[in-house]
């Protein structure tokens, strides 16, 4: 059976896996974005808190994803839980770092002006600082998503959802006639998903970055 026949036969299964893969990444990204931006907001003002946040998140990133999931299984069990936790943790770093860099990069004279015309702390954050820091934050989200696409494949190891299952099945049955097709289908599926997400981010950037600061 060649690759195209394989796709034709298994498209039902593949689409379900792809959908679950995308859905897991998307949901984890939402959580990671909210958490990451909040961590950024809380820490960007102080030197040590900012570096603590970036160091912690980058330390998490150095843990191999397989090991991380392996470590999570005894604590939260198999299935969706370890997947979501691992993905969210990995997704944090680029977002936290870019939030801090973005918020710190806002021209101090603009913050001064915002204060000077009588904006409250909250108004300053939401009307001036976050909108101006949004382009780098969005870049962080994009990088994060690309990364999670790959990491999510490992989640199959903990019986998590997604295209990883296809890859793992292929690896487990190496030598059988469909093994290569399975690995190939899973990998290509992830790449296609990653490209689709990236296109979506370009669109989101177009829609949410004000014309006045668009590059």
């Amino acid at each position: 059976m060649n690759f195209w026949d394989y796709l034709g036969n298994r498209h039902q299964q593949l689409l379900t896996d792809a959908y679950q893969h995308a859905s897991a990444v998307f949901q984890c990204m939402v959580v990671a974005t909210v958490l990451g931006v909040i961590i950024g907001i809380v820490t960007y003002r102080s030197d040590w808190a900012g570096s603590l946040a970036t160091t912690t998140t980058s330390t998490i990133l150095t843990v191999p994803s397989l090991a991380m999931i392996g470590l999570l299984i005894p604590i939260v069990g198999l299935g969706v839980a370890p997947t979501v936790i691992a993905l969210t943790l990995y997704g944090l770093l680029p977002i936290v770092r870019n939030s801090i860099v973005g918020l710190r990069g806002v021209d101090p004279s603009l913050v001064d002006a915002a204060k000077g015309i009588g904006m409250s702390r909250v108004a300053r954050l939401f009307r001036v600082e976050l909108p101006l820091a949004w382009p780098p934050i969005l870049t962080g989200i994009r990088v994060s998503t690309q990364m999670l696409m790959g990491i999510a494949a490992i989640a199959a190891y903990a019986s998590g959802p997604g295209l990883g299952n296809e890859i793992f099945r292929g690896i487990a049955s190496l030598g059988s006639k469909n093994a290569l097709n399975q690995v190939l289908a899973g990998t290509l599926g992830i790449i296609v998903l990653a490209l689709l997400f990236d296109a979506a981010y370009v669109l989101i950037g177009r829609l949410t970055i004000p014309r006045g600061i668009r590059a």
Binding site: S109, L110, D112, A113, A114, K115, G116, I117, G118, M119, S120, R127, V128, P131, L132, P210, G212, I213
Partner: peptide
């Protein structure tokens, strides 16, 4: 904050918000 709304403030390089 209330005080500053009653006192106009203009600075060097205008301080206009580029995203508005």
């Amino acid at each position: 904050v209330k005080l500053r709304r009653k006192v106009g403030y203009a600075i060097q390089s205008s301080g206009l918000f580029p995203h508005m």
